[in-house]
Nucleic acid binder design. Structure first.
Lengths: 179, 179
DNA sequence: CCCATGAATCTTGAGATCGAGATATATTTG
DNA sequence: CAAATATATCTCGATCTCAAGATTCATGGG
């Protein structure tokens, strides 16, 4: 780790959040414990819940639920012919197999995806985006990005890059092991 | 924003994660879009799901569900006599009022909390931790902190502080407005 | 004092998630 | 080649969550 000249994140406005209050409360009630980990991970969990609410709102304009968006965009990103196995969808969306079966069923009923037999493995199935599914995914993505940009306006571009890099170090171990 | 000498987050090991692959896929499929926001916010959402799974595992040793932990520790942090209104519990746990009523019902049946009339407002209720509830919260917290420390070992202490500060700037707007 | 407005909590019904186990097919091993 | 093991997906039942609306009480103006 080398020292270099870089942007210091030195905030003049130190606005408190719920986690500051939460940590202060623990230090008062349990001064014997080191609750430093909560400074990072409680913020991650709470921010994710806030984002989930915000997304639910943003998607409701497009008649899409967040879980529908997750599946449709996973297929969209795969590129033509826009198909993945349920197993690949699992690693992208981090839900259980039972949940994914259920999601595919419902999206099929809505005409946004279709199930095809996997030609190379008779156990398997491929899930393919329909043209309508593709359009819905594209529309919703544009809306989501606009919303996310507004939330991230709190940070400068280098700060966002720094934040992304720090988060990557935490997510990578989860994403790169069997677990 | 001043420039100072500080630790540069310059990683020799640039381990990829799912979000790197996700972003690369979008740039290939939708080169017209700027997907930079996903670098931060998709990592936040995915990390939160990984944490949720890890917590579920950690708490199962104590026969506690994550949602039970959230409610019990909110009350524990409040300090003696360990009581809060359902409304206060809402802002701490970010669930809807219907969900909270349900949670309080179930925790009451398990003998971990009890409902008392609010002496200063006859509409209101106070939820109080029972002695057993308090013990369960304290045990589970110790276990959670140990697990979180292991996850955060990927970062140095100043990196953790930096990460917490950056996240605070994103959570504060959510935590400090009516929304 | 009474009514209108607002706030805090609870009720309800629909829908989504999880975990565990079932089923069918692949792959490896002896 | 047969048996054992592993993999991919689905089924099922129990919870858990949410959104919307109902209920109960507080508060302020007339």
């Amino acid at each position: 780790m080398q020292e270099t000249l870089c942007q210091q994140t030195h905030y003049t406005d130190h606005m408190e959040d719920e986690v500051d209050r939460l940590v202060a409360a623990w230090r008062r009630e349990r001064p014997d414990l080191d609750v430093e980990p909560l400074e990072v991970l409680s913020r991650v969990s709470r921010l994710a819940r806030h984002l989930d609410r915000a997304r639910r709102l943003a998607f409701s304009e497009h008649q899409l639920e967040p879980w529908e968006f997750d599946v449709l965009t996973s297929l969209r990103r795969a590129g033509a012919p826009y198909q993945l196995s349920p197993g690949q969808l699992l690693t992208q969306t981090l839900v259980t197999s039972g949940t994914m079966t259920n999601r595919i069923d419902r999206l099929t009923k809505k005409g946004l995806v279709e199930r095809l037999p996997d030609p190379s493995d008779r156990r398997g199935v491929l899930v393919r985006l329909t043209p309508e599914g593709r359009d819905r995914a594209d529309e919703a993505l544009a809306g989501l990005l606009a919303q996310e940009r507004a939330i991230l306006a709190q940070l400068s571009r280098p700060q966002r890059a720094e934040l992304a890099a720090l988060l990557r170090r935490l997510t990578a171990p989860f994403d790169n092991v069997p677990g």
